[in-house]
Design a protein around this nucleic acid. Structure first.
Length: 217
DNA sequence: AACGCAAACAACCGCACCAGG
DNA sequence: ACCTGGTGCGGTTGTTTGCGT
């Protein structure tokens, strides 16, 4: 995994080390933060005795050294959560990680890209999963849930979707290739499609929701 | 044992955002 | 309003590891 340590020069002639962190560097960074706290990543490295960029220090701390980080294999339960959250949030790894205590965005991103991505691209091709989107007159009250026959996603989770930033983007890696919209007893999908609208890849779901909401006015 | 290939994962890079001046 | 520095995020890269031949 580890890259060969190397030292690059930066413009101000200070040397910045790159590559794998040594145990000694880890110890220095942890000791410094324990003593002085995190006050400024850019300027912490030098007094901490590290020839590292602030970015590198932050990344190492956030992804590996900070307390309560879980190291080790992702469990089946965690995998399920990742899959479901990815359906809602797409590649917003930090958002997904915030719902998995002890796991980092980098770890989840790696896990998805190396283990889940191929599997779900394949499944998507074989079995599209429908999402139901309920649009009420109140724009802050939008419910998204999958087809109940398939869904594991809890509606309460979907209810917590913010406005409008948490609306997922449909893209090649998302698992919401289609959805239906209800307004009361009324289904708007026919209306939507009758207008020649097509939901394609890289389509922002929120834009669709706004358009669909206009239909119920 | 040697080699090739894919998987796994740590870390880098570039960009966007935000706060303060 | 604009600029600048710091931070956070997502995409990508590069190296190691493991496995099959």
């Amino acid at each position: 995994m580890a890259r060969c340590p190397r030292v690059d020069k930066i413009s101000n002639s200070k040397k910045v080390k790159k590559g794998t962190w040594s145990a000694e560097e880890d110890r220095k960074l942890v000791a410094y933060i324990m003593r002085y706290g995190i006050w400024n990543w850019t300027h912490m490295a030098e007094p901490a005795g590290l020839e590292r960029s602030g970015k590198s220090c932050r990344l190492r701390w956030m992804n590996y050294l900070r307390p309560n980080i879980k190291h080790g294999n992702i469990t089946k339960e965690e995998e399920e959560i990742i899959i479901n959250l990815h359906r809602v949030f797409g590649n917003r790894w930090a958002t997904i990680a915030s719902r998995l205590p002890g796991r980092t965005d980098n770890e989840i991103k790696n896990y998805w890209n190396t283990r889940l991505k191929k599997r779900f691209v394949q499944e998507k091709l074989e079995m599209p999963i429908a999402c139901d989107v309920k649009v009420n007159s109140n724009p802050n009250n939008i419910l998204i849930h999958q087809n109940p026959s398939i869904s594991i996603l809890h509606q309460t989770e979907a209810t917590n979707l913010g406005f409008p930033h948490d609306i997922p983007t449909l893209n090649a890696s998302s698992l919401c290739p289609s959805y239906e919209v209800h307004h009361g007893d009324k289904t708007l999908a026919d209306c939507w499609h009758s207008q020649g609208n097509i939901i394609g890849e890289d389509t922002n779901l929120w834009e669709h929701l706004l358009s669909l909401k206009d239909l119920v006015q």
